[in-house]
Design a protein around this nucleic acid. Structure first.
Lengths: 224, 224
DNA sequence: CGTACTATCGTACGTCGTACGATAGAGTGT
DNA sequence: ACACTCTATCGTACGACGTACGATAGTACG
């Protein structure tokens, strides 16, 4: 009873699978996946560690569930516009989601069966492409390519040692450029120096690649 | 002395950083990163767990070193051909390497500072692009896009629940198609069915996306 | 024959995922 | 009222993990 009251102080509701998974995502956003332990998560929820196992069979399944919630956050390609606008919108949304949950990208490669939100997303994307006049096989190609662009940029972005363009500009001259001596890395040094003056925005970088891919796919549609 | 003899039976040489890292990669290839523990790795080397710490400061640094060896395996873009052939060759090599070491992709997102092999690779790629007539900024764009294609396809490939085209064909009808009922996922069902008959090769899928990206970048070069 | 240095590793601590079983409350039938 | 079952909660404990600390033994050099 006292325990329940204390639980209510920190979390003010009974445990549910949704609450467990949602809190796990919050925790992973804050601390990374390595910082997400069952004990810590339980503490966050004001519960005992073993209580979680009534809502989630084990940590792996919890991670699966977290990934699927992440996919739920991705906007589906809207109907009623041209396919490029629709796919751009969905892809931009996906990139934002993965930027918000950087742990999700690294988690994906060990999880081999897609969750239901993932499947729903894929279905909507495929529908959009097919309706735009891509053949079945070409829609598959386009799907792979566009997903690669999203995942690839998200992965590279997660690797960056800085988060914003400003942060990059701040640290570039003192920290990054010295690691790229012109003798050993003339081209990288030149690039880094140019980026300092030009500014640097991963989101714009992504749009460049995405639009190039979309434009390259355009002529591969069958005539509508 | 007896211990040393036994060590020599299983590993026949003194410990070195190279040997430790190489064995760690072999172990990760076999068991995945989660299966790579310091104790297991030491056992594999016929040594005590703590002995590893004379060659590697901790597990994180070991993972960094492993990633860098992986980058060393990637072929650099050769000089003396057109830029597209050179980049295609290097990218295909990179995809093969990541297919051989699937754990490497998932590891990258937590490692923020590139190792020396990674830097050397980026330098060579940038050099290739700059010599082909891309401006400094355009070379950066191209670099991001091409890396995204490599990482993105590698990541998706690592997610596939099957490894080869044959294995897909074997399991598709019994396992995958039933998970995609035509009522709920008409388009995905159609795609999967088409892929069963058309055959399915991730390597070809990659080439499609890569060549599309290369072709899309071609007109962005400055005149040579 | 010391004296210093390097490589090896045994032990121990704190943390992890989680199996097992205890408990307590709620619901239901009599 | 009581017995029963069901659900949710969690304390305890086990084996594996990364690794700090300090002991040891072998080698190099004065």
């Amino acid at each position: 009873m006292a325990a329940r009251e204390q639980r209510q102080v920190t979390s003010d509701a009974g445990l549910t699978k949704q609450r467990v998974v949602a809190e796990a995502i919050k925790l992973a956003d804050r601390e990374g996946v390595e910082g997400l332990s069952m004990r810590q998560l339980a503490r966050e929820l004001g519960a005992g560690a073993m209580s979680l196992y009534h809502y989630v069979p084990n940590r792996e399944k919890l991670l699966d569930a977290m990934i699927d919630i992440v996919f739920e956050e991705i906007e589906l390609p809207p109907e009623g516009t041209d396919w490029q606008s629709a796919m751009r919108r969905s892809s931009v949304s996906a990139r934002q989601v993965f930027a918000r949950h950087p742990w999700a990208i690294g988690l994906m490669d060990s999880r081999t069966s897609p969750g239901s939100a993932h499947l729903r997303h894929r279905e909507a994307v495929t529908a959009c492409l097919r309706r735009a006049g891509f053949s079945v096989l070409m829609a598959t190609h386009a799907n792979w390519l566009l997903d690669s662009v999203v995942y690839g940029y998200a992965l590279q972005e997660a690797n960056l040692p800085f988060d914003t363009a400003d942060e990059f500009a701040d640290m570039a001259e003192d920290v990054y450029l010295p690691q790229l001596p012109p003798g050993e890395f003339p081209y990288l040094n030149e690039s880094a120096a140019a980026l300092v003056t030009a500014g640097y925005d991963p989101a714009e970088e992504f749009i460049f690649g995405l639009d190039l891919a979309l434009a390259a796919l355009e002529p591969l549609r069958d005539p509508a």
